[in-house]
């Protein structure tokens, strides 16, 4: 918590990607954050760890503007979430347990659709598919017929295509083979190099401490401890 206060004092507000102070957030009528305090500078990686039900996913969804905030200061990319999450549209990407893609369409068709609505080119679609190592056969197969790992890669390719300012990754290494886990690390490193901010959740504390600039521990919908990480992700070429 002290680290968050230090960060707030040492960094101009305009350089903070997100700034949560005592945030209470609701999913419908149900409180999912019970006074969470955390902030992160632009271009940094924050890892969130904690047990099941600690509030990690809820924190990401709140950062994305998908959960309503009912108390506290909640600013993301300069937008006040207490005024609604609509201002974040197009600037935040959330990669969770769901792919956010249409099961009936292939990864390529999904990305082509996404490219149209986000004003990206067809070339960007091919580049995004290549970035997650989806070969042309897999990229042309309906999502419903792909393995869990391939679906995760397809979901990640959508994030690559959109390249949002704030990447929110909910257990991005889950259901992936070792090679794909390395691929995720490369994508995260690339996003950070491009100036994006990344917040990810993890069930692997050692990995989180190694990769992240700061590690937030959560329990019961609040951030209980913030520790400086090793920032090892920046060494990933």
């Amino acid at each position: 918590m002290k680290m968050s206060q230090d960060l707030r004092q040492n960094i101009p507000p305009s350089d903070l990607a997100f700034n949560f102070v005592d945030v209470v957030a609701l999913d419908g009528q149900f409180p999912v954050l019970a006074g969470a305090t955390l902030c992160g500078a632009k271009g940094t990686l924050t890892a969130v760890i904690g047990g099941n039900g600690a509030g990690k996913t809820s924190l990401l969804r709140t950062l994305a503007g998908l959960n309503a905030t009912s108390r506290g200061t909640a600013q993301v990319l300069g937008c006040d979430l207490n005024l609604g999450g609509g201002q974040l549209v197009g600037r935040v990407g959330l990669f969770g347990h769901n792919t956010g893609l249409y099961d009936e369409l292939s990864p390529r068709d999904n990305l082509r659709f996404l490219a149209k609505v986000t004003r990206n080119s067809k070339r960007a679609v091919d580049e995004a598919l290549a970035a997650v190592d989806l070969n042309s056969r897999v990229a042309s197969t309906p999502l419903s017929r792909l393995s869990a790992g391939q679906r995760r890669r397809a979901g990640l390719s959508a994030m690559v295509l959109r390249s949002p300012e704030l990447w929110l990754l909910d257990e991005p290494h889950a259901s992936l083979d070792p090679a794909a886990k390395v691929l995720v690390d490369h994508l995260v490193a690339g996003a950070l190099r491009a100036g994006s901010t990344v917040v990810l959740t993890s069930h692997e504390p050692e990995l989180a401490f190694f990769m992240a600039d700061q590690v937030a521990e959560m329990a019961g919908g609040v951030v209980t401890k913030i520790t400086r990480g090793q920032g090892g992700i920046s060494d990933v070429s």
């Binding site: 549209v89 197009g90 769901n98």
Partner: peptide
Amino acid sequence: TGVSEAQRLA
């Protein structure tokens, strides 16, 4: 599979 939220965010 989270399509609706993904489109809102996009």
